[in-house]
């Protein structure tokens, strides 16, 4: 990370985004647990019920945003943990891109699943 051409320096950006996503996730993760374990019991979940929930545009959008923010927050956290343990140089670059690819795959697959759960498309 040698480039400091941008006035918005990447290190600070990731730190800030980690906090912004955290604030969002605190609320949505709590909501997610409440809805799928307390309001609807996990054992009683059926595809029909899932489709009914996911077909509401607001809920669908929240879940997709949930997926994206959670992926960023989680993967960025893993990357930070490794850098803090002294990961640097080529292994760091390799790990970084591995994590980026894993995140993209997760988000793509997650969105595919979310679409399959709706009657929207």
């Amino acid at each position: 990370m040698a480039e400091y051409y941008s006035s918005f320096e990447p290190q600070g950006t990731r730190w800030f985004l980690q906090r912004v996503t955290a604030a969002f996730l605190v609320v949505v993760l709590a909501f997610h647990f409440l809805l799928l374990h307390f309001v609807n019991h996990a054992a009683e979940i059926t595809f029909a019920g899932t489709t009914a929930r996911m077909s509401q545009v607001g809920y669908f959008a929240t879940m997709v945003l949930f997926l994206v923010t959670a992926t960023f927050h989680g993967v960025n956290g893993v990357y930070n943990a490794l850098v803090n343990q002294g990961l640097e140089g080529t292994p760091e670059t390799a790990v970084k891109w591995l994590l980026v690819v894993a995140s993209v795959l997760l988000v793509v697959q997650g969105v595919r699943v979310a679409v399959a759960m709706t009657t929207l498309v």
């Binding site: 006035s7 918005f8 320096e9 600070g12 950006t13 730190w15 800030f16």
Partner: peptide
């Protein structure tokens, strides 16, 4: 210092 750095960077937006 972290907050000051973020605030300073956000100003350019």
């Amino acid at each position: 210092l972290k907050r000051e750095a973020v605030k300073r960077n956000l100003k350019f937006w």
